Computed example of a mutant assay.
Amino acid sequence: MGFFLLQVPDTSKLVNAAAAAAQQAPQKINLWSLLDKGGWIMYPLYLLLAAAIFVFFERLIAISKASRIDANFMSIIRDNIMSGNISAARNLAKNTDNPVARIIDKGIQRIGKPIDSIEKSMENVGKLEMYKMERNLSILSLISGIAPMFGFLGTIVGMIQLFYEINSTGNFELSVIAGGIYVKMITSGSGLIIGLIAYVAHNFLTAQVDKTANKMEAASAEFLDVLQEPTR
């Protein structure tokens, strides 16, 4: 009768292999610690991000407020003018706080003058209202342009430092070079992300301004039509 011997594996080798695999496994990097490795150039980028967020929400609130127009506003103005109650129309326009009302108020003040003069006065008010809505939007445009440049500047400075250290120490190990490069690329990535955020924010707010401008033009055209109706 034969006997079969069972070979028991060496558990110490398995434990050592598992420990080595665990050491070789890539470690997860915390986002904040990763950004902290970007160096001093990250602080201007943080300021640019904070400025972009502040300008976006400040302009969003202002533009949203300017675009709130009562659907019955022009109908009431029309009825008052057609009935000859100019003072009531003026009081309504004067007590309504939005660009359309201020344009109409200027037109009401010029009633009795030639249509071209009334239209020109309303256009001037419209330009001022457009300037008020577009104020500070250029800051977002500026941030979208200079944030990536700051990021690239940080990467270039970091690469110069990295190669200087390699040249000084003579350490050409791939792990050292790769580790230094990925750290220096953090500023470029951050700059591009901040620039993209500012670019999207600028275009979104510009679209909202254009919508409000269309409402202003439509109200101005309707008001001029009302003034010419009695003469038809």
Rank of each mutant, 00 (worst) to 15 (best):
N91K: 13
N91Q: 14
L92K: 05
L92F: 02
A93K: 09
A93P: 02
K94F: 06
K94H: 13
N95A: 12
T96R: 00
T96L: 05
D97V: 07
D97L: 06
D97S: 12
N98S: 07
N98I: 05
N98W: 10
N98A: 08
N98C: 13
P99S: 01
P99D: 07
P99G: 02
P99K: 02
P99I: 04
P99C: 09
V100H: 00
A101K: 08
A101T: 05
I103G: 07
I103L: 02
I103C: 14
I104G: 02
I104W: 01
D105F: 15
K106R: 15
G107C: 09
G107T: 10
G107Y: 08
I108V: 14
I108D: 01
Q109V: 09
Q109Y: 04
Q109M: 08
R110F: 09
R110I: 01
I111G: 04
I111D: 03
I111F: 10
G112Y: 07
K113C: 05
P114R: 04
P114I: 09
I115K: 04
D116N: 11
S117C: 11
S117M: 12
S117E: 15
I118F: 01
K120Q: 13
K120H: 04
S121E: 15
S121F: 05
S121D: 15
S121L: 00
S121C: 05
S121P: 00
M122D: 10
M122W: 08
M122N: 08
E123K: 12
E123Q: 14
N124A: 12
N124F: 12
V125M: 14
V125R: 07
V125Y: 00
G126E: 08
G126S: 05
K127S: 12
E129K: 11
E129Q: 15
E129R: 06
E129D: 09
E129H: 10
M130F: 06
Y131C: 03
K132F: 12
K132D: 13
M133R: 07
E134H: 10
E134V: 11
E134N: 12
E134T: 13
N136G: 00
N136D: 11
L137T: 05
L137W: 06
L137H: 06
L137P: 09
S138I: 15
S138L: 10
I139T: 15
I139Q: 08
I139M: 13
L140S: 12
L140C: 11
S141L: 11
S141E: 13
I143Y: 07
S144T: 03
S144M: 09
S144I: 00
S144N: 03
S144G: 14
S144C: 08
A147Y: 03
A147R: 01
A147W: 07
A147S: 14
P148F: 00
P148Q: 06
P148G: 12
M149Q: 09
M149Y: 14
M149S: 14
F150Y: 13
F150Q: 03
F150P: 01
F150K: 00
F150C: 14
G151Y: 04
G151L: 02
G151N: 04
F152D: 00
L153V: 15
L153F: 14
L153A: 10
G154Q: 10
G154N: 09
T155M: 10
T155N: 06
I156N: 03
I156H: 06
V157N: 01
V157S: 13
V157C: 04
V157E: 07
G158L: 10
M159Y: 07
M159L: 15
I160R: 11
I160N: 05
I160Y: 10
I160K: 11
